[in-house]
Simulated assay, not measured.
Amino acid sequence: MISQFAHEYVHYDSVGILELCRKIIQTSKEELKKIYNNKQIQGYQLLLIENKIDVEEKLIGDKFLDVTHGKYPFVYSLVQPLENSTINFDSIMECLYYIRVDS
C-alpha cells in the first residue's frame, strides 16, 4: 500500500482538460502496472483531482500548485518504491509527462 514515502507527481500536459486527464490515467495505469508486475515498485495510485474538495478528501496538500497554477482537473500520481530499489522513478514518470512535486 502507499505510504508517506511515496513519490508524488502531477501530470502537467493534461491540466485543465478532463477528457485528457481520463486518458492519461488509463495510459499511466498500463505503464505503472507493468512496473508493478515486474516487482519494481511496491504500489501506485492515480487520482483524478477535479476540484478543491478532492484535494481535501485525498489529503494531497498544495504541492501541486506550482504545476497546475490552481487549474482543475489534473492527475495526481503516487508511486511507492521498494525499499532497496535502484530504479529512477523520476525519469520514468518524466517520460509519461509527470513532474515530481514532493521533493
Rank of each mutant, 00 (worst) to 15 (best):
I25R: 06
L18A: 11
E8N: 09
L47T: 09
D102G: 08
L78W: 01
E83Y: 09
D62C: 12
Q42L: 03
L65A: 11
H69S: 07
Y97V: 09
H69M: 11
H69V: 02
V10R: 09
T68Q: 12
I41K: 08
S3F: 11
Y72V: 10
Q45N: 08
I41C: 00
L82K: 14
I25G: 00
L65H: 07
Y97I: 08
I41E: 00
Q40Y: 06
G43V: 05
E94D: 13
I17S: 08
P81V: 10
I2L: 05
Y72N: 01
V101M: 05
Q80F: 04
E94S: 13
G70F: 13
Y44S: 05
D62A: 11
C95N: 15
K52C: 10
K63F: 07
K39I: 04
S14R: 03
V15R: 10
L20M: 11
I41G: 06
I60A: 05
Y97L: 04
E30Y: 12
V67G: 05
G16L: 12
Y36E: 12
Q40I: 00
Y72E: 10
T86S: 15
L82S: 06
Q4P: 08
E57T: 06
L18E: 09
V15N: 07
H11D: 14
H11S: 09
C95R: 15
M93H: 13
I99V: 13
D62P: 05
F5W: 00
Q80V: 01
K58Q: 13
S91H: 13
